[in-house]
Amino acid sequence: MSTAVAIVATALVVVALVFFAAGTAGVLRFPDVYNRLHAVTKADNVGLGFLILALVITSPSALIAAKHIAIWIFALITSTTACHLIARAALQRGIEPWRPR
């Protein structure tokens, strides 16, 4: 692995960490389940994307890179579905979306 690739990969991981940190802060600080879901799924999907990108550019073969991308796509599908199901269950149980006072 050349130094340039290593620097780019490190930068991508740092960007990913920023998104993960933002998502975590959202889960801890946002007022209701819908806002928290928004924060965690959106930020974590993007963060995971950057992390996967860093792994792809450092992976030793195209096959391994393709597997990494497949992991990201499956994570997108499952986290979107899980987010939808949790929000739906919350709505069905009558949890009112938060409104600023």
Binding site: F74, I77, T80, T81, H84, L85, R88
Partner: peptide
Amino acid sequence: PPGALLAAATRVMVPV
């Protein structure tokens, strides 16, 4: 039934 999105995700994820 838990909705169209779960059904669609199931059709993708079960074979995978």
